[in-house]
Design a protein around this nucleic acid. Structure first.
Lengths: 209, 209
DNA sequence: TTCAGCCGTATTGCATGCAATACGGCTGAA
DNA sequence: TTCAGCCGTATTGCATGCAATACGGCTGAA
């Protein structure tokens, strides 16, 4: 499990070359363990869709455009569900308004980093915002699936794709989602999340390469 | 990979006792391979949420009620998305109406088996119907995630839960989903799917044990 | 020059062995 | 009788070794 976690981190953090195949021996030397636990971890990572192990050598998966879009669409589906569910819970009084302050803080952090031009921090904060929404929705299955998809996207978009200058828009969209959640308006929360996600999809589509 | 597939099948088909821990040696003897590939497969199955491997011996996961509901909710979220997307594609003329005949046939099969009282076949046909909708929606990520969740539910509901007598209702709901898809009405398709799923959730909730 | 076919070797996939570990039950005190 | 603590053993987790395999490049024909 620890080897799995370590290897996953290496993959997600971009510490493993994506332009060539890597041998099990290479990874085991790097992690100072034998090939056996490395193989186990790789098998799991393959299940997560993070690496490709057919043939000889393992390859970090950089998603082809079609699959990138598929993951983005899937993410939009679950995130909009989560936002709607959270709004319902707020409306039902299951979530104390104070807990929503966490979301405000994360949106603030995301916006601040974006304005400061700190892309890496901004990306991370943005993810944290969306993951917090999923967590507060109270469905661990959805939460975990989304986390896996985020990881896939991180790997896929590291080399190449960059969020372009729709910077201003992102923050406004986050605030719109939050407002709907706070109002307990599930429908509006879903719509706002779908719109937000759709903009990301459009951006990716419009960015060949 | 073959060992993984074989073991997964054993788990999903209920061929492995769920009431006790099973040792790696036991499974490797059964599959006629050494413990090494069995361990790899188990690690992956754990990632799929099908088994629990903490401590000593592996355990097939029978979902606790809270998690069962979480999976059902998550499934509803993705399936309603898929139904809506498929309806859009039909509306856009991307899907030839002839391909929807497949769905009719699967709904027929599900209904026929249900009326014949063949629960096992009915369950399978029902799953095929929903998986066909997901496939036609054209998003492999959604499709595969749903397949994994179906497997989890199969294992979880094998011992104990049984679909009760809302038999008539199920077919009517399938037809409603189909009608919305055929009409290219994404909103209606989503609503019909959510309603269908919600009935299942209500049923499970109402069936303690 | 191009490319089909082969061949050597790096690499995988699995089996096996062993130290570390976790469990089930036993012992003895309260 | 109950249960904390220990102890023996089944089981895991990892390392290692080896046969099977897949790849990269070489050879020679077209």
């Amino acid at each position: 499990m620890t080897v799995y976690a370590a290897l996953r981190r290496l993959v997600v953090d971009g510490e493993i070359p994506t332009d060539r195949r890597v041998s099990e021996a290479e990874l085991s030397a790097r992690l100072q363990v034998s090939r056996t636990p490395v193989r186990e971890a790789l098998s799991r990572l393959e299940g997560d869709g993070l690496v490709d192990a057919q043939g000889r050598g393992v390859r970090v998966r950089v998603l082809p455009p079609a699959e990138l879009e598929a993951v983005l669409e899937a993410r939009a589906a679950l995130e909009s569900w989560a936002a709607g569910r959270l709004a319902e819970r707020v409306g039902d009084g299951e979530i104390a308004p104070a807990r929503l302050a966490e979301l405000d803080a994360l949106a603030d952090a995301s916006d601040a980093a974006t304005r400061a031009g700190d892309l890496s921090t901004a990306t991370h904060a943005n993810r944290e915002f969306h993951e917090a929404v999923a967590r507060l929705a109270g469905n661990p299955v959805v939460e975990q699936t989304l986390a896996t998809w985020w990881d896939r996207l991180v790997v896929a978009t590291r080399s190449g794709l960059r969020e372009p200058a729709r910077v201003e828009q992102v923050d406004a969209e986050h605030r719109a989602i939050l407002a709907a959640i706070r109002a307990g308006d599930a429908d509006a929360a879903r719509r706002a999340t779908v719109a937000h996600a759709q903009h990301t999809i459009d951006t990716v589509r419009g960015t060949p390469e």
